[in-house]
Structures are given as structure tokens and as C-alpha cells.
């Protein structure tokens, strides 16, 4: 019970900090504007023969690319700022464990990302008005977005613990997210299968985020996909605690 209480206190403080600094509003507005404009301007959403009321090939194509930037931008200050200003000394001498702080902060940043994702709901209302969407696929798309955002945020969290500079954290985390996405795109997997062997392609496919995201946005919320994201989040948060502890050792 104490753990939950401590996590919720850290969560509330962190969430307030995200909104106090106005950054959260900026991220939400940028995410919504970009995801909408990319959907309506670049895709064939309004094409006469378009049959994508479930948004799988239009709207849900973009969040992965946007979250790759947004999640590191939301999470870059989580630990880097604490270390730069020295408040980490204050936080870690309070009667809470490192884990309470890590989870509280992570959930607060994840809430900002989730709010940004959910703020795109008008697009769902639009397709519901215009056509007959498959709600399962739409739900799958949103769940895929949130899981992807959580994974990218967990990576950012670990990188943020490594550095005092938010900008360095942003660049490093962004590069890792981009790399993790690239290793599983179809051309890379085909190249790996042709030039190396199938096992390498399988490993890249299961470690990369592309295939998990595309499967989930189709509405395939399989155990493998969920387990992939949960283990990635767990590993990155564990890494965060190791970095924070080892920096003081």
C-alpha cells in the first residue's frame, strides 16, 4: 500500500510539472496537429476509392513516427533534469525507494503521451460518421500507439538516467527508437533473410518495433506483442534503476 501511495505522490508531482512547464500542452498540440494533417493531407483518406474506415492504413500509419520524437521529448527531462539541478538528492533521501520514483515518473510521462493520443478522437468520430469502421481495429490501433509510446518512453527513461543533458537524452533516445524501428522494416528483414539467414531476420523482426506495431494496429493484440512491449518496458526501467544506483556507488 505504501508503495502505491508513494508512486501516486511522485506521479502527481511529475504530472503537474509536465503541465506547469507548458511542455505537455505543446507536445499534445503538435502531436494532434501533425497526426491529423498527415492523415488528411498526405494519405488517400479522401480518395474516391478509399476503403479505410478503420483508419489502419491512413491515421494509424503516422503515430509511430511521431511518437518516436514525442516520447523522448516528453521523457527527456525525467531524470536528466533531476541530476542537473541536484533535486535527485532530495528525492532519493525521502522515505521512498528508487522504484517508486521511477514508476511514478514513468506513469506521469506516459499519461501525457496517452492524453496526446486520445486527443485524436475526432478522426474516429469522422470515420464513424462517414462510413462503417471496424471498432476492433480502431481500438487495436490506439492500443498499439500507447504500447509503442510506452516502449519509447521507457528507453528515454533509461537514457535520461545516464545524462544530465536533456538535449543529449533526446538525441540518443530518438536514435535508439529509430534504430529499433528500422531493424524490423520489411526491406531490412528481406535483406537479412536473403544475405544472412532466416534466423537473423527472425531475431531482428522480434526485437524491432515495426512488426509488433503493425500487427497490433491491425487489431492483433497477441500475447507475443504485449509481452514484447511489457518486457521491453520492464527491462528499460530496470536499467534506469541500475544506472541511478550505480551512479551513486
Amino acid at each position: 500500500m505504501n508503495a502505491l501511495k508513494n508512486i501516486s505522490i511522485v506521479f502527481k508531482r511529475e504530472l503537474k510539472a509536465q503541465f506547469n512547464s507548458m511542455l505537455a500542452y505543446v507536445f499534445i498540440v503538435i502531436f494532434v496537429l501533425l497526426s491529423m494533417s498527415l492523415t488528411f493531407l498526405l494519405d488517400d483518406f479522401f480518395a474516391p476509392n478509399a476503403q479505410d474506415a478503420s483508419l489502419e492504413f491512413s491515421f494509424f500509419r503516422w503515430p509511430m513516427w511521431l511518437l518516436m520524437f514525442l516520447a523522448p521529448a516528453v521523457g527527456m527531462r525525467l531524470w536528466a533534469e533531476e541530476q542537473r539541478t541536484g533535486t535527485i538528492e532530495l528525492l532519493l533521501t525521502m522515505p521512498i525507494s528508487v522504484w517508486h520514483a521511477i514508476v511514478g515518473k514513468f506513469l506521469a510521462a506516459l499519461s501525457v503521451i496517452t492524453i496526446a493520443i486520445l486527443c485524436t478522437f475526432p478522426v474516429v468520430l469522422t470515420v464513424a460518421y462517414l462510413g462503417d469502421p471496424d471498432n476492433g481495429t480502431i481500438w487495436g490501433g490506439y492500443i498499439a500507439c500507447i504500447f509503442y509510446g510506452a516502449g519509447a518512453l521507457a528507453i528515454t527513461c533509461a537514457v535520461s538516467a545516464l545524462t544530465r543533458s536533456s538535449v543529449a537524452c533526446l538525441i540518443i533516445a530518438l536514435s535508439i527508437c529509430f534504430g529499433q524501428l528500422l531493424i524490423a522494416i520489411p526491406p531490412v528483414l528481406e535483406y537479412a533473410a536473403d544475405n544472412w539467414n532466416g534466423a537473423v531476420a527472425d531475431v531482428l523482426g522480434s526485437l524491432g518495433t515495426w512488426s509488433h506495431y503493425t500487427e497490433m494496429k491491425r487489431g492483433v493484440i497477441s500475447l507475443a506483442n504485449v509481452a514484447f512491449y511489457l518486457s521491453m518496458i520492464g527491462f528499460c526501467l530496470f536499467l534506469t534503476s541500475v544506472v541511478i544506483k550505480s551512479k551513486r556507488a
Binding site: V10, R13, K16, A17, N20, T85, G86, E89
Partner: peptide, 28 residues
């Protein structure tokens, strides 16, 4: 059991004095 004032008196600068102290009180 400990109250601690670190060397450079670090604080969360995005908070007000009373909200920061309320946070510290709540956690304790």
C-alpha cells in the same frame, strides 16, 4: 527519521513554495 538539507539547497523550480512543501509533507 532524517531531515536533510543538501549542499546547494536543490528545489523543484516549477513548483510554488507551498506546493513543494506539501509534496514533501505528503511523501512523509
Amino acid at each position: 527519521k532524517i531531515g536533510y538539507l543538501p549542499e546547494s539547497a536543490p528545489l523543484y523550480s516549477d513548483m510554488t513554495v507551498s506546493s513543494f512543501l506539501s509534496f514533501a509533507a505528503e511523501i512523509r
